[in-house]
Design a protein around this nucleic acid. Structure first.
Lengths: 248, 248
DNA sequence: CGTCATTTTGATTGGCGTCAAAAGGTGTGG
DNA sequence: CCACACCTTTTGACGCCAATCAAAATGACG
């Protein structure tokens, strides 16, 4: 049973000061003192098992959540039951920012593997960020990055074909894993074909077929959720025309 | 020639204090004093003629822009020349927030009719928002709203069929016009069929065909850019299944 | 070990893209 | 103000990509 030894609960008292995710998460460029203030605001982290909700659409918004370990999906569900996955999220990423506008969470956040998150009470973060300008700026940057991310997904959903979407998806996962020190070309997908399809605006059969096609061409190896990238150049070629020009 | 009478330049000195857009734009819930501070930060507004750029992708990010009057599109262009419209924007809306993350504008913003914008130098807004908590909170809310907006477009692009997308688009334009005191069911589209298509992930022929179909069914009247909505209920029916459940 | 969920693969369908042409509108210069 | 060129829009015919329907294979989990 999961909670038989409570010893780790003590270890769970989090501290940004010695968190290995510092460069990915909030506390970029803060000094010792400011880090201590941040630590004081962050609630003891929370463990979630696979399938558990971090928050649900419609719940009152009180906190942002930073992923310490694990993997999440965020999704919205329509009235007729279909769900649209709006993102997959890994360690160091901040979830819940869409809840600020209406004080209500706008999507569900669900753990795709056993995970651990830090809770950041928003009003306290807000007042803290008034005292620490670089924290305030960093917050704006994170929200802006989310806007940029969403817009690049709009571009993907609006312009790209099935194989281009899959290629962009695989390369995106790969580079984010690499940023976190994992292997870039050999990884386990935490989500189902259906969830990938929902995210990419495709049906699960199309996802499966396209992965098989990539494998037949020798670009990747697919063994269920275990993916190996052999020829990332070919994948990059596929999407080279669709990505936005880094003009000027 | 456009600038032959400079008299209006004087009139252009903007003031949030007496701006009719207050409820739509930034200064919500500020007192007299705070409004004065805000006015001091906002640069004299700028006039743009149809087709002019407010900013371009790749330009250094220095300011956000609030639309006083007029109509804009934002778009990203891919390396092979195709463009994806990421949004249409009307008075009271704030543009440029995607530039905060990388200090570089991430899209083009182009006037679709003669327009007037207020420039908000970002660093000054940032420091001002430290002094005025409600301004800071409002800023977070605006950025969060942009995230919510983008995600609902992701849902549209990922799940909906052509006619559902068009219906959602028409109803969205209609409600935003109504919010600004214009007629909700009788309006002129400022953008071309191709721009609508780009925004909705459709080709211009499909947009045209679908509008014709709606007209044949008696739901709307299409006279080029002049649109009249006769049966909004039918349009709402069309998308009733796809919109996200307002749970709880 | 049996049941259920997930994934793969095939056959078929349908919606939207593509190509094409004509009509209508817009803007410019004479 | 008109004539002309150009652009936008509409409509039709056709083709293709991905959805749908279906069934078998494989894996996951109690």
């Amino acid at each position: 049973m999961p909670e038989q030894n409570n010893s780790h609960l003590h270890a769970l008292k989090v501290s940004c000061s010695n968190c290995t995710l510092r460069e990915l998460c909030l506390p970029v460029g803060l000094n010792r003192d400011e880090l201590a203030q941040l630590d004081a605001v962050i609630r003891q982290s929370r463990r979630l098992k696979r399938g558990e909700y971090m928050f649900r659409s419609g719940e009152a918004f009180k906190s942002l959540f930073a992923i310490r370990t694990g993997f999440f999906k965020t999704c919205m569900s329509s009235q007729d039951g279909r769900e649209q996955v709006t993102g997959f999220h890994m360690s160091g990423e901040l979830l819940g920012m869409d809840g600020i506008s209406a004080n209500v969470h706008g999507c569900d956040a669900i753990a795709l593997e056993d995970s651990e998150v830090c809770e950041l009470p928003f009003t306290r973060m807000q007042s803290l960020s008034r005292d620490i300008p670089s924290l305030q700026h960093h917050f704006y940057r994170l929200m802006s990055r989310e806007i940029v991310r969403d817009q690049s997904i709009m571009l993907l959903l609006g312009n790209m074909k099935a194989d281009e979407r899959l290629a962009a998806f695989l390369l995106n996962v790969s580079s984010r894993l690499a940023t976190r020190g994992f292997a870039a070309n050999d990884f386990i997908l935490r989500m189902s074909r259906e969830e990938i399809g929902s995210f990419l605006g495709l049906k699960l059969e199309t996802v499966s077929r396209t992965l098989s096609k990539f494998q037949q061409q020798g670009w990747i190896k697919v063994d269920h959720k275990h993916i190996q990238l052999y020829q990332t150049d070919e994948l990059k070629n596929l999407i080279s025309g669709c990505i936005h020009a880094q003009s000027h």
